[in-house]
Design a protein around this nucleic acid. Structure first.
Lengths: 344, 344
DNA sequence: GCCACAACACAAAACGTTTTGGAAGGGGAC
DNA sequence: GTCCCCTTCCAAAACGTTTTGTGTTGTGGC
């Protein structure tokens, strides 16, 4: 009666132990380089494990070690939009892609999770080692819950209502906003209108504050419109109608936070016979397909989502390893200067 | 000596049992609606669990149940490209987004995993309940490994070298290709050139075969160029130079598999003074930002990645539940008829 | 008063690891 | 011969669940 039947399921540590004629303890030690096994036994165990294509069961290991090897990613603006697939917005994809690849480089997985405060979220979302929260809103409830539970967490962009929380990465929104406004000014704009989103996160808050301060500094009129991020290009069109078609004096430049809004403004301007960049300069605070491919192409801030994704995951991993890594990681944005802001 | 110190870590089932004055068995039963507990005890347990904010530890549960509650997604073309963030291609994003949302709807998580045949992939990639493999290549090694290990797996698009494997979802590439070619023909095209990708997957293989058969049927010249998917718009430009600038008779229509190639062809045609759609009709086998936003907009097949992502995850879940769901799930594509193919 | 049978509750085993705390054996020093 | 230490290995506990099997009651029929 030969025992040649190959096991239908995967090999366990017991199989390896039996096959190698040692205890499971020794197998575990040999594989993890922990114990005091002799070199001979170690090699024998390694050989057997390799032959059986043994891989430690991730859950069993996770249960024992208290680590799962998976990171969670929650993009808050996507929770807000209600769709995880906003048309043409590649910021989130580029971010998530870079984060996933960085995690993979460190031997970790990355899982997209939904709003953790909703009641019916999958069990697995709770089983991750730590979280990256993208663009938290003011006093973000998800962040609150995680911090209360003492779960390691890193955000992208600060929480506007939580100045003491410094484990975040992202651009210096104030500084970058000023850069764009200065560009518009250097190209002759004197009446710049600002189109912000409605999400109450640092990206919107800091940009608007920077805009108002900048306008005051230059004794220029400040005009701010709020358009929901989810309104997309249609939202931009509506805003453009109000800004360009009203009785009030027309702005000679419009700065939109999102690329989609900017694309909508551009389309409406064309329809109204307002030439860009001839009669109106246009810029966006976030690069997207719409800004790159529009005609004319729209000047936009590239918020370097790849760099953010990488930095966020690395900061989180440092936290997980107990390192007291440095507070905020500020990343430079890149300003793509395109046709919509005219010639210098 | 009161025991009032709140536990620093999360509550376990033992805590709930102690607090409710019952055994852990009863707690488990009450929470999972399994056993024969009386309504009174059940309610009491539920109340305590709620008060302690108890959630079953996902790994412990997974270990016991043999299920992790996480699905793995491997997009093979992305492995091939080497970048997980191809510029302007939203097929993968839309697919992954829909897949993730569908998984969430079923209480499961979705994890992006890299090429499983590489040596150094994270443990967690092995801990998922099943896999979705996007656009497998001929005799795909990843698919081979999973099937050998008897791991549940579903693909998007069939494996060209594995006709017996029917657990796939996706469009009928042959039929959809013919649809586009017929459109071109109905708009007057008689010499249609075909620009395919180089990935050896069903999408390319079936489309090229359909093209050749269609040309034969109509006694039209067949001209096929192969351009790597990763070459993007530049690849399209190069191909257009060869097709439009050479000595051979010019095609009066070009059908490109990818939207990026088509955008490149369009740009080069414009540079060469070939009018689209006046002198040349143009269509793409995959919708993308580039086809939608190009001027003129390019007619393209929308492969309905959202529907595919949803169907793939649902088929996989059916498999996981032991249902002998029906073989391939064929999904209709939508043909966006745009300016690049002229007026009817 | 006995028996059968619900109804309810629980102890213990199991899932596959890692880690703790020895134990066995051998060799050298005294 | 005794003691001690080093090397090498292992049994068992632990991680937090779910599930199986086994009591305990209490109730009603005869």
């Amino acid at each position: 009666m030969s025992e040649q039947l190959p096991p239908a399921s995967r090999a366990t540590i017991k199989d390896v132990a039996r096959e190698a004629g040692v205890s499971v303890t020794t197998v575990s030690h040999a594989l993890n380089g922990k114990g005091t096994a002799s070199e001979a036994t170690r090699q024998r165990v390694l050989a057997v494990a390799d032959r059986l294509a043994y891989r430690a069961h991730p859950m069993a290991r996770g249960l024992r070690r208290g680590r799962t090897g998976v990171l969670g990613l929650d993009m808050r603006p996507l929770d807000a939009i209600g769709s995880y697939i906003p048309e043409g917005v590649d910021y989130f994809v580029r971010f998530a892609g870079a984060a996933a690849v960085t995690a993979l480089d460190h031997g970790l997985g990355l899982m997209l999770v939904p709003d953790l405060t909703r009641p019916d979220i999958p069990q697995s979302a709770h089983g991750v080692d730590g979280y990256v929260i993208g663009d938290p809103t003011r006093d973000d409830p998800v962040l609150t819950r995680l911090l209360d539970a003492a779960v390691p967490v890193v955000t992208v962009g600060r929480d506007p209502g939580r100045p003491e929380f410094t484990d975040w990465v992202g651009p210096d929104d104030t500084h970058e906003t000023e850069r764009v406004l200065e560009l518009l000014r250097s190209r002759g704009a004197r009446r710049v209108a600002f189109l912000a989103g409605t999400d109450d996160n640092a990206w919107n808050v800091d940009a608007e504050r920077a805009y108002r301060a900048w306008a005051r500094r230059h004794r220029a009129p400040a005009r701010v419109l709020h358009v929901p991020e989810s309104a997309g290009e249609d939202g931009g069109r509506d805003a453009a109608r109000r800004l360009l078609g009203g009785k009030r004096q027309r702005p000679d430049a419009i700065y939109c936070q999102t690329g989609r809004h900017a694309a909508g403004v551009l389309a409406e301007a064309r329809r109204l016979g307002v030439a860009v960049p001839g009669d109106l300069l246009l810029a966006a605070g976030s690069d997207a397909q719409q800004t790159r491919l529009a005609i004319p192409a729209i000047t936009a801030l590239d918020l370097a989502p790849e760099a953010s994704g990488k930095a966020a995951v690395e900061l989180l991993i440092a936290r997980l390893n107990g390192e007291t890594a440095a507070g905020p990681v500020v990343l430079p944005a890149y300003l793509h200067i395109r046709v919509s802001t005219g010639e210098s």
